[in-house]
């Protein structure tokens, strides 16, 4: 308790209510790195899932080795390996948004890692769809790709989206790791302020900002899931019920103790 009483509340207050430009850049970096990495991770996971279900054995093996390695080694090790091995380009979109080279490295590492987790989630989603759906689509003259896109994946999405939302929650927090390769994001910003003032309150303030991001995401996730709800199967839950489920203490306790 002593520590809390002695806390420099002014620092926390300033960081939360009067964030400066530099901070805003760091917050934006965390957001876009999370979103881009998650989108690429889903795409990679989809490709790997389809490879896993392919009738061509080498494709299945490649997919298996990919998941084996990237789920079986620490993300931080992967980040350092990719940082020290590959030269990544920087990207510039007008004067408003540019992605520095080290952020590209971070995105690369995060999305490759994420793809390994997404593969399992997407595969489970596709597996959950009755085999008769693919047969019906084929009997109507649909080819594999069309049947996947129009029939199987839209149904699998309902199974995929809830765990995908949890993945994104993890992703936003995992972006803190790429501070180690010099990406200027939320945690890096906090650490630099800490180094200058040696006040651990900066970490309290940054924790608050991460909490804001994940909380906003909880609302967005509940909204998306409601839109996808299976109205035709009578399984629709209200927005409030979904939020309750998301905040259910037992779900928080047992639901995502993965990393």
């Amino acid at each position: 308790m002593h520590v809390l009483v002695a806390a420099d509340w002014h620092v926390i207050w300033q960081r939360i209510f009067h964030p400066g430009n530099v901070f805003a850049r760091a917050l934006w970096a965390t957001v876009y790195i999370s979103v881009v990495s998650q989108v690429l991770g889903v795409a990679l996971g989809l490709v790997a899932a389809l490879m896993r279900m392919s009738s061509i054995p080498p494709l299945r093996w490649i997919s298996g080795i990919y998941v084996w390695i990237f789920r079986g080694t620490p993300l931080l090790v992967q980040i350092f390996f990719i940082y020290t091995t590959f030269n990544t380009p920087s990207f510039h979109f007008g004067s408003l948004w540019s992605i520095p080279a080290e952020a590209t490295t971070g995105i690369l590492a995060l999305s490759i890692n994420e793809g390994a987790y997404m593969r399992e989630i997407i595969r489970a989603g596709i597996d959950s769809i009755d085999r008769g759906q693919m047969e019906a689509a084929k009997s109507l003259g649909m080819r594999y790709g069309l049947a996947m896109r129009r029939i199987i994946l839209p149904q699998a999405a309902r199974v995929i989206v809830p765990p995908l939302g949890n993945e994104f929650n993890n992703m936003m927090k995992n972006t803190a790791l790429i501070y180690t390769i010099g990406v200027y994001e939320l945690f890096n910003d906090a650490d630099q302020n800490y180094s200058a003032a040696l006040k651990s309150e900066y970490f309290v303030a940054v924790a608050f900002w991460y909490l804001m991001l994940t909380t906003v995401w909880t609302f967005i996730q509940a909204y998306i899931e409601r839109r996808l709800a299976v109205s035709e199967r009578g399984e629709e839950l209200s927005f409030r019920e979904r939020l309750q489920a998301a905040w259910n203490p037992t779900a928080a306790w047992f639901g995502s103790g993965r990393r």
Partner: peptide, 22 residues
């Protein structure tokens, strides 16, 4: 591709309907 094209002229009705629920 050819198999899919041939199936367009053969209609099939399944025991379990297999309608697209979405």
């Amino acid at each position: 591709r050819n198999i899919a094209r041939q199936r367009t002229q053969i209609g099939m009705v399944f025991q379990r309907f297999n309608l697209f629920p979405h």
